[in-house]
Nucleic acid binder design. Structure first.
Lengths: 177, 177
DNA sequence: GTCTATATGCCGATAGAC
DNA sequence: GTCTATCGGCATATAGAC
């Protein structure tokens, strides 16, 4: 059970089901390679955080890039969400090692920003989680957002509206006081 | 494909699989009734929003209650998330009618708060989505949160920490300026 | 109403021809 | 390497005895 079948993947990718298994060995191995690459792409923008940046600019940019990912690759976001929700049977090691270390490194950067008084003292972990949660929400819960508002991120005006609101919410919450 | 099997449900509920089908007719009908009840419970706290409340108290309380739901019923949160991520095949009508209407009603309340200058002018839709996204994140992405921080909402100290941070982030973003 | 047995269908994986 | 055919497992659903 992984949200899709080899048959669907094979049809979509225009190869035979047997060839998929020939190349990847098993469905799980296919999933692992897809998810690993996916995790890498989605984490890249976080890697650019560094102490010398202006935190409000860096975080504002990060929110924009993450929201663009939600707009351009919603199925990938949902695939990853599916995996994590099931307890990350295939990806737990990736989450516990590389992801954890990346987050810890960036937590230190955010702490430095706080210590120098550039942003308000929030727990960096929860700041990062909040950015992930709010931006990915528009991909993972696209159906619900559309049912309630009638719109999706593919509508450029709606994208801008979401971006402005998330940036305002999070950056205002961070303004030093 | 719905995250669990009738066999599991039957075992867990200590009834036979055939009896489940006897009572509910089909797996889909069982799901619909479970999801409907679930949606109702999860939306109840939003229903209490009213113009005469102090918005910062009302929203702060809402964040707490939603986070308690994420702590006490994470599997239900994930079940609902699963359904929506698949395009809400069983629940779309519920999202487009009762949910939409409830949200629109509460959007009006939040707009009244904004118009009277009690909170900053944010789009109420995105405020509501942000609260849903951030609070449910700790249930739906429990595995990832635990992999990164080593902790879950079941740890009372961690629960308090998350609550303080989410309230600070969102309420500070709303403080009139 | 509740059980056992079984029909039916889908999916992952393998065998074997070419 | 790529195809067709098929096995074996699991899950929903139904038939029929009690």
């Amino acid at each position: 059970m992984h949200g899709t079948s080899l048959d669907r993947v094979a049809t979509e990718a225009d190869v035979s089901k047997t060839n998929l298994l020939y190349y990847f060995g098993s469905k799980d191995e296919l999933y692992v390679s897809v998810l690993r690459e996916l995790l890498d792409v989605w984490l890249t923008p976080l890697k650019t955080f560094s102490v010398e940046q202006d935190p409000l600019v860096a975080i504002g940019d990060y929110i924009r890039v993450k929201l663009e990912l939600s707009r351009d690759h919603p199925e990938e976001s949902r695939l990853f969400c599916m995996e994590v929700m099931q307890g990350a049977p295939l990806l737990l090691a990736e989450l516990e090692q590389p992801l954890r270390e990346l987050v810890e490194a960036k937590v230190k950067v955010i702490k430095a920003w706080i210590d120098s008084g550039k942003i308000a003292p929030v727990d960096p972990h929860h700041l990062i989680f909040s950015i992930w949660a709010t931006t990915q929400h528009y991909a993972d819960f696209q159906t619900q957002v559309k049912a309630v508002t009638g719109r999706t991120l593919e509508d450029p005006a709606f994208f801008e509206e979401v971006l402005q609101n998330l940036q305002a919410l999070i950056l205002n919450g961070l303004r030093p006081r």
